[in-house]
């Protein structure tokens, strides 16, 4: 098993290298001169030349890439063009809200979606199943910002239960924190709930057709025990896989949700950076998000070998 874990972990390296290369090329192969942007409105041509030199933009690409990669490995993501602050510091400042929102969304979605999927599978073909599936397709079909605005309108403005915008750090008290991320979590969670519910239902249905379930039922085991102990446990792998893959979806949603609810997280940082062409920030944020995605999926892969002893590579 350890050999498998080691092998899986090593496989991350080429993936991250490709990510780094893509992120690097993104900025260097697209039109537009970063030096001119950094120099700003009043730049004189000699300023631009100086900045190009300073940033090493006059060197061949492969040298630029290796210098850049080396500094990234040491944790240096460069300096923001506009605020002149280190990108790693800017990212650090905004990590908490994004992390909190992502974790709460995953928890919320799993807690809602897995029971939904199980229920739908168990009552397969009934109106319960149908309505859960209709919800699941609907959840995929409405953009997250529309859901966000509807939630704000109903729960913040009409009922006044939740704040309209902003984020309260956990350090400022747990209840204000929960209140501030409740609506964003729900808005962001809808797609995720839909996704996980579909997969849970599908994999449960498949497991329920297996012989050992029939055997268990024939032996007269309690239905609850059959569902929980046999079926759900065996359906867990695809469900966990989809949670991992769905992180990519989640990150896209975080960016939107943070702008709807004005949460000062990494998503807002990304959008601001994109609107201002603050290249070092764009690079840094994409790298961080991708690394998070890769690591979460690595952990998930590793967790299989604990969940399902049959999986050995």
């Amino acid at each position: 098993m350890y050999a498998y874990i080691a092998k899986r972990t090593l496989a991350v390296i080429p993936v991250m290298l490709v990510v780094a290369l893509v992120v690097f090329l993104l900025l260097h192969l697209t039109p537009g001169d970063p030096a001119a942007v950094i120099a700003g409105d009043y730049a004189r041509p000699e300023d631009i030349v100086r900045i190009r030199k300073q940033l090493g933009l006059d060197e061949p690409l492969y040298i630029q890439f290796s210098t850049w990669l080396w500094s990234v490995l040491r944790g240096d993501l460069g300096v923001s063009i506009f605020s002149n602050m280190p990108v790693s510091k800017l990212i650090g400042q905004r990590l908490e809200p994004t992390l909190a929102l992502s974790v709460s969304t995953i928890l919320f979605s799993v807690l809602i979606a897995v029971p939904m999927g199980v229920w739908a599978a168990w009552r397969s073909g009934t109106w319960v199943d149908r309505s859960i599936m209709v919800f699941a397709v609907l959840g995929f079909s409405v953009p997250v910002f529309v859901i966000g605005y509807v939630l704000i309108y109903v729960f913040s403005l009409k009922f006044g239960w939740f704040p309209v915008q902003g984020y309260k750090a956990i350090g400022d008290g747990f209840l204000p924190f929960l209140r501030s991320i409740a609506l964003p979590t729900i808005a962001l969670g809808v797609v995720y709930v839909a996704l996980i519910a579909r997969i849970s239902r599908a994999s449960m249905l498949e497991v329920l057709n297996e012989d050992y379930i029939r055997t268990a039922r024939a032996k007269g085991q309690v239905e609850r025990k059959v569902m929980m102990r046999h079926a759900l446990k065996n359906a867990a792998v695809p469900i966990i896989t989809i949670i991992g893959i769905g992180i990519a979806l989640l990150i896209g949603g975080v960016v939107v949700t943070e702008s709807v609810f004005n949460i000062p997280g990494l998503g807002r940082l990304t959008i601001d950076a994109v609107l201002r062409r603050d290249y070092p920030i764009i690079q840094g944020v994409i790298l961080v998000f991708s690394a998070a995605y890769v690591i979460v999926n690595l952990l998930i892969d590793i967790s299989y070998s604990f969940l399902d002893p049959r999986i050995r590579y």
């Binding site: 029971p115 229920w119 309260k168 008290g173 209840l175 209140r179 609850r224």
Partner: peptide, 29 residues
């Protein structure tokens, strides 16, 4: 209806209790 639906129902009750509680917090400080 068996255990699962009962559990769902109790979860719904828990949520219904939690929401107004959340709502009232943080106003007075």
């Amino acid at each position: 209806m068996t255990t699962i639906s009962r559990r769902l129902r109790s979860a719904a009750v828990a949520l219904a209790v939690a929401v107004p509680m959340l709502a009232s917090a943080g106003v007075g400080d």
